[in-house]
Design a protein around this nucleic acid. Structure first.
Length: 594
RNA sequence: GGGCCCGUGGUGUAGUGGCCAAACAUGCCAGCCUGUCACGCUGGAGAUCGCCGGUUCGAAUCCGGUCGGGCCCGCCA
């Protein structure tokens, strides 16, 4: 990567280069000044090379180097030399050699940075990093993540292209179509009072590409959602968007799995995939066994349905939810029977935060009896219960009962994850990919008093459930599949409805009028009448993918310029007010609240 | 929309009613130093404790508000 400013990068020189005359350019990583002798660690994104200036041998260069401080950009010229006996640095890839400088040029000085570029600083205020993101991105760990993300994206492209996929870009100024989330909106200058929306996903567009005959499409697409942020959610994110024609669920799953497996082995050869092919769970199984539709399958501690085991027990915490048609679930935390009040309180807190009324805890004694506030209600049923959950003496049994079966399972599912963390069961090095499929097609929206698409409203019903769409919508499952990785939702997709009539029927069930449908999805509905092939696809979140591979728990760590939790960009200071002239041009007037 | 946590020299922390116009580490500046690699040694500068208001004889410390950041619930493919 030789340029006008350098012959080599700072990560390139080895013993083979000894004797060569080289020019390097980079940032001063660290300076060790011994008076008449000074060492500089010169850094670029490729590595670090030690360069030496010596007052005796090259006085001018030594003098020129004196003012240089950390993060100054400098250029050095000199000879590569093997480091003297016993001064090699095994920590450095270039540690066998050093460059003896005879010309030292300051290309640009630097102010003292607001935080350390040259070392890790765990407690550092993230807002500082975001404000000076260009400096944060200069830190080697950030660079490593950005480089990994680049290789990841490249591997994804290569795998898909090798498999016959075509990359097609779709616009980011589109029509607002109420999907799940709130749209970001862009005012139109040419059409007063009208707005574009930024796509929540290229969903409709990629389906239209299927109608257009591009039977294997993909795109690394930006998607926008005006919803509240989380560690794994930004208003703007990148998804690996994929759509295929003439496919059934099995085709999409196996194609995507092939791509994901290939990419994983290329990018993270040292991290094993837990199970290949990826296990597949129905949504119902995932909920019943893990209390999650994105289960972390790297450890067991599965939920056990105790509804029957405790039926008839005279304990209102159990009997009332059961009477209301709910369920009782339990898990066993091995060896945790001695948990302190404080540890238990934390778990109870966690359970409540996730919507359950509380958490019943029972420690299994050596004689098989149970201790805990609820133990007295279970007299005579201990053995049955212990057997049902397969607990051993010293274990802790944790139970959630809820009138809503799913809600109860989810609450205990969170307890399960917390216990997995506490017991160190979530093996960080392992990739626990798992498919979850057969989601319920519709969920009852009590507020709107109508059925709502559980996921994507374009998803096709499972063939075996299709005739119950009108008679029993709640029991209809969709040809919908999610890919989960280590407890994170990695991606999701479905086989789409490719017949206008069926799509209209489905929308009608969700309370859409015919006019409303034509208004919002006219192009798609029309297109379905012009020979739309059966098709389906998936979208995989690239940011989460990169975060999981980088082993960070926040997607901001793998995004170059992320926003804060309140949706602001601290570096660019966005969003910001705009000039009145700009507002006028857009035919907008600001109305302040209060 | 709601809950919780954080905000003290450039940075990270300590200080939780008077002993504090604030301590430690690191960074920064200056001097010395020819084999360092978190170089070392000596000296120095640097903070009205996020902001506003209140309680108190007295506030970094207590209370209220506000701003900024983070985590979570709701929301969200």
């Amino acid at each position: 990567m030789s340029t006008s400013f350098r012959t080599h990068t700072c990560g390139e020189l080895r013993s083979d280069h000894v004797g060569e005359r080289v020019t390097l350019a980079g940032w001063v990583h660290r300076r060790r000044d011994h008076g008449h002798l000074a060492f500089f660690d010169l850094r670029d994104r490729h590595g670090i090379t030690q360069v030496v200036t010596n007052a005796e041998d090259a006085g001018d260069a030594h003098l020129a180097a004196e003012p240089a401080r950390n993060e100054w950009v400098v250029q050095v010229e000199g000879a590569v030399r093997a480091r003297p006996e016993r001064t090699a640095n095994a920590e450095l890839a270039t540690g066998e050699i050093e460059v003896v400088v005879d010309r030292f040029v300051v290309l640009n000085p630097s102010k003292v940075p607001p935080f350390y570029i040259n070392e890790e600083q765990p407690g550092l205020d993230e807002s500082l990093r975001l404000k000076h993101r260009y400096l944060d991105l200069r830190r080697p760990p950030m660079q490593a993540r950005m480089l990994m993300r680049s290789r990841l994206a490249s591997a994804i492209r290569r795998a898909l292209e090798d498999d016959g996929f075509v990359e097609i870009e779709t616009p980011t100024l589109i029509r607002s179509t109420p999907e799940g989330a709130r749209d970001f909106v862009v005012p139109s200058r040419l059409r007063p009072g009208e707005f574009y929306a930024l796509p929540q996903s290229p969903q409709v567009l990629k389906q239209l590409l299927m109608v257009a005959g591009y039977d294997r499409y993909f795109q690394l697409a930006h998607a926008y959602r005006d919803e509240d942020m989380r560690g794994d959610r930004q208003p703007e994110h990148t998804q690996v968007d994929i759509e295929m024609s003439f496919v059934a669920e099995e085709d999409v799953i196996s194609t995507v799995e092939r791509m994901v497996t290939r990419v994983a082995k290329e990018i993270l050869p040292e991290r094993p995939i837990l199970t290949e092919p990826f296990p597949r769970l129905t949504y119902a199984d995932a909920m019943n066994r893990y209390g999650s539709d994105k289960p972390d399958i790297r450890f067991g501690m599965e939920l056990v349905d105790l509804t029957d085991a405790v039926r008839g027990v005279d304990f209102r915490v159990f009997s009332e939810p059961i009477a209301a048609g709910g369920a009782v679930f339990g898990i066993v935390a091995p060896g945790c029977g001695d948990y302190s009040r404080k540890q238990l309180d934390e778990l109870i807190d966690l359970t409540k935060r996730h919507g359950a009324k509380g958490l019943v805890y029972l420690s299994v004694q050596d004689d098989g009896s149970l201790h805990g506030p609820a133990a007295k209600f279970l007299e005579g049923r201990e053995a049955e219960l212990v057997a049902a959950v397969a607990a051993n003496p010293g274990d802790l049994i944790l139970i959630v009962a809820d009138a809503d079966r799913i809600a109860g399972a989810e609450a205990l599912g969170h307890v399960r994850l917390a216990m997995g963390d506490r017991l160190g069961l979530r093996q960080p090095g392992v990739l626990g990919y798992v498919w979850v499929h057969r989601f319920p097609m519709y969920t009852w929206d009590a507020e709107g008093e109508r059925w709502d698409a559980t996921h994507n409203p374009f998803s096709a019903p499972a063939p075996e459930d299709i005739d119950r769409i009108e008679s029993d919508p709640g029991s209809v499952r969709a040809q919908q599949y999610d890919l989960a990785l280590n407890g994170w939702e990695s991606g999701g997709g479905s086989i789409r409805i490719h017949q206008r009539e069926l799509l209209e029927k489905s929308f009608a069930l969700m309370g859409h009028t015919l006019e409303g449908m034509r208004d919002q999805f006219g192009a798609l509905l029309d297109a379905l009448e012009y020979g739309a092939p059966p098709h389906g696809g998936i979208a995989i979140g690239l940011d989460r993918w990169a975060a999981l591979y980088a082993e960070v728990d926040n997607i901001r760590e793998v995004m170059a310029f992320p926003k804060t939790q309140s949706g602001t960009d601290l570096m660019m200071d966005a969003p910001s007010p705009i000039a009145q002239a700009q507002l006028d041009e857009l035919h907008l007037r600001i109305v302040t609240d209060d």
